[in-house]
Simulated scan of single mutants.
Amino acid sequence: MDNRGSSSGAGTAPSEWVPGGGRLEWVDVARGVGIIAVVVGHVWTQGPVRDAVYSFHMPLFFLLSGLLSRAQPPGAFTLRQLGSQMRPYAAFLALLIVADQIVEPLKGHRPIFDQWPQDMLPVLLGGSWLRGPYTIFWFVPCLMAGRILFNMLLARWRDPLDRRWAWVILPLLPIAYILGWITDASVLGLLSVPMALVLLWVGAAWQKVAWRRWMWWPLAALSLGGLSGLLPTLNMKAADYGAPLLSIGSAVATSLLLFRFSVRVGPFGGWLAGVGRASLVIMYLHVAVIHYFSPILGKPWLLTLAVALPMGAYHLMKRSAVGRRIFL
């Protein structure tokens, strides 16, 4: 969830998408919208609200990462990703495991992991083996692996509209669906990497597309198909992509429209941008807040706390040199 923009090459879309560098306020706004949708989907676990946000919320982050991508030396990029992403992953996972060992006994319950050292195996496997307050931990390793593989290809074929990309993207689509039909077992969330690669490519290719007003109509129609529940919803963690091509197409359409919205409100989206800047910490911690407080709080309060408490933790970590080094 890198916040940096990427270089724009000749023939790319307007600079509102990918300027020469620096922080883009609209990117943080888009992340803010996306992470609030993620929290909403974990507070309202059934019904039309849940189905609406599940129709797009995780693909949005993959598309945004692809849109901001630029080719980098594969070796250095891989090492940087492993260090910058897996260090916070391990730190937040260890923090929540320790917290669960304390909180659950205080409530008169057994911790989720209480058979040591046997429980080290599911902890190390991650992905579909992590549930309850850890359920979101599939996302970062999946995004990281997707970005590493995508960067290797992008370093070779720098133009995402190069025809040679078709030799990769077209086979990946059926592979993604077939894997999801065969199993939902996912080590470190890697089951979803084929679809993640497709979404990263779509985001990168969108850099090259100049916006036209007529695009509102087909994108809005496809988006409404998912938001309304007309199309089957998505569960990227389990590699369940709904109706082939249509559900993921609806997710892409909704995300692209939200990017347009974010560009428009970017100059005045201060609080949303603030949420977006804390999105990684919110991603890791919000499910734990929901898990521990859901027996005693109503859903609106859960939503508020699941955003506010991780944001508070983010600002505390940001102020501490040790906190920044370990968690951010």
Rank of each mutant, 00 (worst) to 15 (best):
D162I: 01
D2Q: 13
L231D: 06
P171C: 00
P48Y: 01
G180E: 02
A273R: 15
S255E: 05
W206Q: 12
A196V: 03
A253R: 05
F268T: 13
I290P: 07
F62T: 04
G312Q: 07
W181S: 13
I35F: 01
Q46P: 02
P14T: 08
R158G: 15
S6L: 14
G226E: 05
W217L: 15
V29N: 04
G312D: 10
V27D: 00
Q101D: 09
G41P: 06
A306P: 04
F150L: 00
Y292P: 08
L272Q: 01
S228T: 14
A94H: 06
V281N: 12
I182D: 09
P117A: 09
D119Q: 05
K318G: 13
D159Q: 10
S250E: 08
K237F: 09
L96W: 02
F113I: 05
L64H: 06
I36Y: 04
L199C: 02
G22I: 04
I97R: 10
S320Q: 02
G34E: 01
L153V: 05
V307P: 05
W271M: 15
P174F: 00
S65W: 02
S223A: 15
D2K: 13
P111W: 07
P133A: 01
L230E: 08
R324T: 15
R324E: 14
S7T: 14
A210T: 15
V265D: 01
E104Y: 12
R156Q: 04
S84G: 14
V168T: 07
G126V: 01
S8P: 13
S294E: 12
I175H: 03
A220L: 14
K299M: 12
G276D: 09
R23A: 14
R163D: 13
G5F: 09
F61I: 12
A13S: 15
L297I: 06
G203E: 00
E25C: 09
M195V: 00
A10S: 13
K299F: 06
S69E: 09
A30I: 05
R164L: 11
L302M: 06
L173F: 13
F77K: 10
L63P: 09
Y314K: 08
F137Y: 13
R264P: 07
S250H: 07
E25F: 10
Y284N: 14
P267F: 02
M144T: 15
P232L: 10
L272W: 00
G189K: 00
P14G: 15
I102Y: 03
I282L: 04
V198N: 01
G41L: 01
R213A: 14
I282G: 07
I182W: 14
V198H: 00
T78F: 11
A30H: 14
S255L: 09
L60V: 11
R324L: 11
R163W: 09
Y134D: 08
A52M: 14
L199Y: 00
L227F: 03
G9N: 10
Q207K: 14
L173A: 14
L64V: 15
A313Y: 12
P310H: 05
K318F: 09
W165I: 01
P160K: 00
D28P: 05
W181T: 12
S250P: 12
R156W: 03
K237C: 08
W129V: 05
Y134A: 07
